[in-house]
Write a protein that binds this DNA or RNA. Sequence first.
DNA 1: CGGAATCCCGTCGGATACTG
DNA 2: CAGTATCCGACGGGATTCCG
Lengths: 120, 120
Amino acid sequence: MSALEYTPYVADCPSRQLLDRIGDRWSVLTIGSLVDGPQRYSTIANRVEGVSQKMLTQTLRALERDGLVTRTVFPEIPPHVEYELTDRGRSLRNVLEPLERWATEHMDDVAESRAEYDAR
Amino acid sequence: MSALEYTPYVADCPSRQLLDRIGDRWSVLTIGSLVDGPQRYSTIANRVEGVSQKMLTQTLRALERDGLVTRTVFPEIPPHVEYELTDRGRSLRNVLEPLERWATEHMDDVAESRAEYDAR
DNA sequence: CGGAATCCCGTCGGATACTG
DNA sequence: CAGTATCCGACGGGATTCCG
């Protein structure tokens, strides 16, 4: 019932900050790159084109802190680190995937609307 | 078929910019404030607590440009402007609502994870 | 009432260099 | 390989002022 008291429309409600985090550019793509199982840091970096290592590390740390991904270090040389979605992370992915799909499916229509808007 | 060629994981793909826009903090809340029909500017401003008038206007313009909301000016004094979701806007809302709900429903769990993470 | 325009500061985030 | 640390420029976004 406590969840019903949260609403992101209120400025200082914690759910607004959470919404910011999970709607974040790199968070969405990072989580998406983990859908098909655990991945190494370098693999994620390759999948999420254009992300700097600073932002990727920062994003992964935040996701780990929020209990959305786990970080596993294999004591090897050279280092080997794997990131994996938790159950909670997967449940979030389930609502992010439609968003990602919406973006790709409506890209053409949006581009058309933009052209019309800019023309007038 | 063209939609299949878009993927936000590629740096310069237009869908990435679109994903940024629609995942944006103010965009999500602004769209959400329009679910129950057309609203005046001031009403939206009140519902989305903490939004500055600059950001609200900017957000509404972007949403209008992308064909997600319509802007209707009533020639009255004082001015009267109403914003309303388009069909496309409503389809987007349908995928944003689960995201918003996820944030409120998992807020407690996430807060707990954060506390644990920070403690160690 | 619903903006537009300007100023200005904070932080986001990229580039670079270094390390276990 | 998987980071950390530092520097620093760009710009997001708030506060303020003015307008039709």
